[in-house]
Nucleic acid binder design. Structure first.
Lengths: 222, 222
DNA sequence: AAATCCTGACTGGGCGATCAGTCAGGATTC
DNA sequence: GAATCCTGACTGATCGCCCAGTCAGGATTT
């Protein structure tokens, strides 16, 4: 019964390959248990494959993690870049609010519309974006610094009063605020007696966007 | 050479006890390797004690971690509460900027003036404050939610236009921005070509405070 | 001498990684 | 067209290592 099928053609796969199943499982287990806490055995079980197969395809735990990051960050950052490019493609310059929205929407939508992981990748992103570990920072540098520069330049373009240093800080702070949304700790609900829900991405965005824009404009005025 | 001395008095220790040495070492190792990645052996070695002694004093790894959190969060949050109380003790209401500064200064000063750990606890705080793990959230709830409520109420007092929900979000976002400072990833330096330094807490605070205040005021105006 | 502090050897278990071997099916040979 | 060869996907048992935690007993304090 456990057919070897899935990848029907001979060329580049179509349909859900076993490799994709492993990456999906890795996303869930890494999100739930952290990098160190995630066991290759647990990932194999979640993917419904033998543990050996993960090593066959990805060689090591570290490379599996990187492959997982590459897949999702590629999807998300291509979408982000496209949104920003669109905003500047037309005659009139975009509003700051639109830039900030372009920064976050792809992340939450990629986390949500796949649905099978419930924002698992976002949680992984939170923990390793904040890591000082050189291994994690290398991944950030390769896969996230380029899109960061795109946004930093976008900020400078529409807010000419912003120095490059200010724009870098503004970007970092914006990401920090976004972490609040992606971490999904449940703390806002606790602190507010149930009113605030960090599971409702849309409601959060409607607060995050004005908050960040207000912060950026305050830096401009300094 | 390796005297067993250290604790000179008889009662509750004065001077650096072995327990404190273990907690200091735990702070450094947990910060460097994460909770799962930190080995009791490594902590024992860093503290210069036998591994068995850690279990003698703290019983389990989890309880050691909690003891470490309790010690520092106690120091930091008492200072934070005192600062906020001071701000409201006098006739005229404080400025929003002063509240935000009271929120962060104790954390960076407790992280820095002990100097022996170079902000190790701040980094631990970042990783477990963002954790969705119930074990971590329980610690946050017990040791950080009360002071959070204090700040949320302070925000509402000086910005009457802020609803409770807005104040909770504002607090969460502020903490998110503060994470940027505490994580010390080195990313700002990379993104800015060396101009921005997340190791310079004073320089960061001078940007963080206006950014957050601008964000809060933007929420008020909505 | 009682109590507390402390050590270092030890244990069982879980870890990442390895590897010999199975299997399906495409290519090659006759 | 059938026997052979070959390859890439996959399994499950296994390895050596390191982990948190234990414990018997030595050292030190009171």
């Amino acid at each position: 019964m456990s057919s070897h099928a899935a990848r029907t053609g001979s060329g580049p796969g179509q349909g859900e390959s076993r490799q994709d199943a492993i990456l999906d499982a890795a996303e869930r287990v890494f999100a739930a248990d952290g990098y160190q806490g995630a066991a290759m055995r647990a990932i194999a079980e979640a993917a419904g494959v033998a543990q050996g197969l993960i090593h066959y395809h990805f060689k090591t735990k570290e490379k599996l993690f990187e492959a997982m990051v590459v897949r999702r960050s590629g999807q998300i950052n291509e979408r982000r870049a496209a949104l920003v490019a669109d905003l500047f493609a037309h005659g009139d310059p975009p509003r700051l609010e639109q830039i900030v929205e372009a920064l976050f929407r792809p992340t939450i939508e990629t986390g949500l519309d796949l649905a099978r992981d419930g924002g698992a990748f976002a949680r992984i992103l939170v923990s390793f974006a904040n890591s000082a570990d050189p291994r994690d920072q290398r991944l950030i540098e390769i896969h996230y610094d380029p899109i960061a520069q795109t946004f930093i330049e976008a900020l400078m373009r529409i807010e000419p009063g912003l120095s490059r240093a200010d724009a870098v800080w503004a970007y970092m702070f914006a990401i920090g605020v976004g972490m609040t949304m992606m971490a999904k700790t449940g703390r806002p609900k606790r602190l507010s007696g149930g009113v605030c829900d960090d599971g409702d991405a849309e409601a959060m965005l409607s607060r995050i966007v004005p908050f960040i824009c207000g912060g950026v404009r305050a830096l401009v005025e300094e």
